[in-house]
Design a protein around this nucleic acid. Structure first.
Lengths: 123, 123, 123, 123
DNA sequence: GTGGTCTAGACCACA
DNA sequence: GTGGTCTAGACCACG
């Protein structure tokens, strides 16, 4: 037990997630060009191949579209973006629920705890 | 070089968190003896100094008590444990709320999303 | 015009197609273990990374399943294999029809030509 | 090294096939002059010797006729062109039948599959 | 052993 | 310039 320090997701997934967040939040707008593979590699401090894989995965998921010789662009398919948002939301909730469960909280506790937290924050 | 995505928390904090979780969940019971610094270091694959720091921090927070020549024990102060649970819960909720905010969800959305998720999971 | 000599598909796709054929023809049976990435790399005379990609793609398509530390296996999902056969068949027919069209044959000609060919071959 | 998958046919044969297709489809008309060896070499990005060989082969098959000092022309012998078309058609069908066989389809399956495909395409 | 990830550096096709 | 593919060699986690 307890040997999984740094058991982080693959870098190419981390970057994909990061970009997905930016897209969902509108920081990267629909149709907008992403940094080129090489640029992004420098920005992220990783090898271009890793970014290549990130972009490939995102294309496979329909989040971006690549045009040879032109670049990689955020899809304009709103449906895909909506699904993406739902997926990301689900992941967040799943982590939350798991953690709360681990702490021994019931479902009711979770909702109450969240409501209290939000009420406090509002003030 | 250049592989430090998601700059994880210091190892000694990670271990402290991990132990705190175990305590709150009752896997480590109140009054129970923790593994010695050396044992824990081997279990965690970490330098004993790191564990020393973990235990010091936890003692500072009142979560554990060390008795010279005997070892480190989970506190029997129920109030502290209760506070600990609340603090961990708070951290989880804070992360959740931040992530949901980043995705552009309102407070109302968060609660509704959570409720839906729990309802789905129940089935 | 006419500059696309050797415009062959990527090697990793060629190998995937080759394996798919073997699977559909039953030379690689359902549940059977494929050669390891390294073995296959030597057999094919390519870099292990290329085979890795081949296997990844095939897993993504559900044709094979990989078990960490054990190997890569032909799926036992008959439905997927059926779909695969249909897809491969479709590809073959599409090429055939395109070529025949290029030669100026009508749809009727294609069928008649095929029937004649088969009749001749039977004898 | 080791990149010769799908050992493609010799280039001079590829070019001959390509020209034959154009002739059969009427893009190169009977009696029409083909590009000179040097022109064709540049167009194809190939050594003139290779084109020379292409033209020689095609002459041997009676598909073209070369006139010293004038150039190379598509034959006006309709019979040869007819045979050429039949030969090309045969090659296409042979490949198709072989591939379908490899996939485990019977002769009946082939015809049915083709008919279905054409019917689908019509829509 | 297995597959999975990553790097470094190369060449290609497209525009 | 762009993305796409491939190689060579390395390290990791899993069993």
């Amino acid at each position: 037990m307890a040997k999984d320090f740094q058991a982080s997701k693959p870098i190419y997934v981390q970057i994909a997630d990061h970009l997905s967040y930016q897209i969902v939040r509108g920081e990267l707008k629909t149709g907008e060009k992403l940094p080129s593979v090489r640029e992004m590699a420098i920005l992220s401090g990783v090898n271009p191949n890793t970014i290549q894989r990130t972009y490939s995965e995102m294309e496979r998921m329909g989040i971006v579209e690549t045009k040879r010789g032109q670049g990689t662009f955020v899809t304009e398919n709103e449906h895909v973006l909506k699904e993406l948002k739902i997926r990301l939301q689900n992941d967040i909730i799943a982590v939350f629920v798991q953690n709360m469960k681990d702490l021994g909280f019931s479902q009711e506790d979770m909702i109450k705890g969240l409501q209290q937290y939000l009420r406090r924050e509002e003030m």
